[in-house]
Design a binder for these strands. Sequence first.
DNA 1: ATCTGTGGTTCGACCGTCGAGATATCAGTC
DNA 2: GACTGATATCTCGACGGTCGAACCACAGAT
Lengths: 155, 155
Amino acid sequence: MSEIAVRLRDVVAASDAYRQTTARLLGLGVPETTILVHLLHDGPRTPTALARRVGVTPASVTAQLDRLELAGHVVRQANPRDRRSVLVALTPAGRALVDRIFAVFRADVARGTADTDPAILDEVARILGEVSQHLTERAHDEPGMARDLGLQTAR
Amino acid sequence: MSEIAVRLRDVVAASDAYRQTTARLLGLGVPETTILVHLLHDGPRTPTALARRVGVTPASVTAQLDRLELAGHVVRQANPRDRRSVLVALTPAGRALVDRIFAVFRADVARGTADTDPAILDEVARILGEVSQHLTERAHDEPGMARDLGLQTAR
DNA sequence: ATCTGTGGTTCGACCGTCGAGATATCAGTC
DNA sequence: GACTGATATCTCGACGGTCGAACCACAGAT
C-alpha cells in the first residue's frame, strides 16, 4: 500500500513549518509571502483575483497589500481596462525578494529529489498536478463534500 | 524540466483551501482539524508534543484543546508516568469524526492517482517522504535558512 | 437613463497565536 | 531529605489575520 495521502499530509505539515520560518526571517507574515509567490508566477493581478487564488476574502487581501505596499514590495497600478479595479504588481525590490524565496525553496525541494531518475520526477510532477487539481475542485464543491463527510445537507 | 517545486506549491495551496472547507463544514477551525488528524495517526500525545508536531507554541495548543474537549472530540487524561503532564486522546466520537475526515481526504487523493501504476505510486510516496523530511529539517535550521535567503546574521 | 452586477475598500468583531509569568512536578546532586 | 535546574501546563494580555456587512465607483446590459 503506497498511502500517498499520509505522505501528502506530511508534506503539507512540513511546508507549513517551512513557510512560517521563511516569513518570520523576512519580517513578513505567511499570507504576505504567499501573495508574493503567486504574484511571481501569475504576473500582475487584481486583488480579487489574488483573493480567489489564495483562498481568502478580498477584504483580507486589502490589508495584506497595504503592508506589502508599505514595505515597497508591490505597487497598486491603475487598470486601464477597468477604472474600478487596480493591478497589483511586484516592484523590482519585491521581485528580487520573492525570487530569492522561491529559489531557496526550489533548492530545498531538489535536495529531496536529487538521487531520483528524471523520468520518474516528471511522473511525480504530473501526479502532483492531478492531485492538486482534484483537491481544488473538491474544496469548492461544498455540497459534495458535506455529503461525503456524512453531514445533513440542512437548510 | 520537471519543476516539482511549482507543483508542490500548487498542492500546498490546494490543501489549504481543502482543509479550510472541511473545517468550516464541520464547525471547526483549521488548527483543530490538524490536531485531530495528528492524534489519529500518532495516538495519544502530550500537548507540547502536539505543539511541536503542528508547529505552534504549547500556549496555542491549550486553547485548541479547550475547544476540542468542550466539543467532546478529545479528553485530557492524567499521565501516569509524569504527573506534570497530560495525555490527549481521541474520544470515540472524535475518533469517528477524524476517521471520516481522513477517509474523505484519502478518497480525494486517490481520485487523482487512480490511473497510475502502483509501482510508480510507491516511488512517489517515497519521494514525498524525502521531500517532507528535508523541508522539516530546513524549517528548523534558521541560521542556514537566513544565510541562503541572503540576510545579515545580525545581532 | 436606469438598473444590476462587480471591484475595492473600510469598519467592527472574533479567532488564533504568541511571550511572559505562575504553578506543579521531575531528575539529579549534595 | 533538601536544593537546584529543567520541563509540562496553564493563564493572561496584546497583536495580527480574517471575516461579513456596508459603502462608493464604475461597468455592462436594457
